[in-house]
């Protein structure tokens, strides 16, 4: 594009640049294609699954088909609601803890090179331990504190990506950003609130999307393993002991549904707080 001092040519036509209100932007994102495409994909997958079971003539203890799930949901819908809610709140609480601790650790490692060098190997080592092995240890350490244990595992499995992304976001802040504000006499905390924090938000939300699914894994590990557990994991376990195979599959689908639900909540939050990072397609 050409540049003249007096009359700059717009990069894009004004009507393309005009920013619609937030509500409209969210509505636009949920517009026809964004909603229709995943629904169609889901329907295709269900049809494929049904056909696969039907063609192979598998009994439902090998693989339940989608049509087997409907009676399971109809029969246990109350249990699904109660257990689903238990799984959901414990996962969300674990996630909130993961965000608080992860952001805190990320800030420490992002601002101090020494702390980064000191903590990184510890964090990586901790993350490398399979959480399935930690579950029985935690269950024994805090016997009976089922809610606490579950939240703890959900937290332990999901804080790592958040801590890493925040620390990278902060430590890769170009020095010029800092200089611009420091030369005006701004304090470290002003620099953090005005520049470092907002600039790190896109990375933070990227990590949060990973953390959401991880937290579900954590919650369910604990719910399945601990005796007399609650939540969808316990429902899965009871399906297993009663050889109710359609129930087991139904639980898996319910978990997937909750995962998708939380994921999209994160997407909406991201659009609100870090929507600026999204480049409009040109």
């Amino acid at each position: 594009m050409t540049e003249t001092t007096t009359a700059p040519t717009p990069v894009t036509r004004p009507e393309e640049i005009a920013r619609p209100s937030l509500g409209r932007r969210v509505a636009g994102a949920l517009g026809s294609r964004a909603v229709l495409a995943p629904i169609i994909a889901t329907l295709v997958l269900i049809a494929f699954w049904e056909a696969l079971v039907w063609i192979n003539g598998w009994p439902n203890y090998v693989m339940a088909s989608p049509s087997d799930l409907v009676p399971a949901y109809a029969r246990y819908w109350e249990l699904f609601l109660v257990m689903g809610w238990q799984t959901l709140w414990r996962t969300v609480l674990g996630l909130v803890l993961a965000v608080v601790v992860g952001v805190g650790l990320g800030m420490i490692m992002g601002f101090s090179r020494t702390m980064r060098d000191a903590l990184y190997p510890l964090l990586v080592g901790f993350n490398a331990i399979p959480k399935a092995t930690v579950v029985p240890i935690v269950a024994l350490m805090f016997v009976g504190a089922h809610d606490f244990n579950t939240v703890l595992i959900a937290f332990m499995i999901s804080f790592f990506p958040i801590a890493v992304s925040v620390s990278i976001g902060l430590s890769t802040l170009e020095p010029e950003y800092r200089d611009i504000l420091r030369s005006l006499g701004a304090s470290q905390s002003t620099i953090f609130w005005k520049i470092a924090l907002p600039k790190t938000l896109p990375e933070f939300f990227g990590a949060l999307k990973v953390a959401v699914t991880l937290a579900f894994i954590g919650t369910n590990l604990m719910e399945i393993v601990s005796p007399h557990g609650r939540g969808l994991g316990a429902l899965f376990d009871s399906g297993k002991t009663n050889s109710d195979y359609p129930l087991m599959f139904a639980v898996l689908i319910a978990l997937a549904f909750l995962g998708i639900l939380l994921y999209y909540i994160v997407i909406v939050l991201e659009k609100i707080f870090a929507g600026w990072a999204e480049r409009s397609p040109t």
Binding site: E174, E176, Y177, D179, K194, I195, P198, K199, L201, W276
Partner: peptide
């Protein structure tokens, strides 16, 4: 600076 370092948000 050479890098305009504007705040994207």
């Amino acid at each position: 600076f050479q890098n305009p370092v504007l705040l994207e948000w």
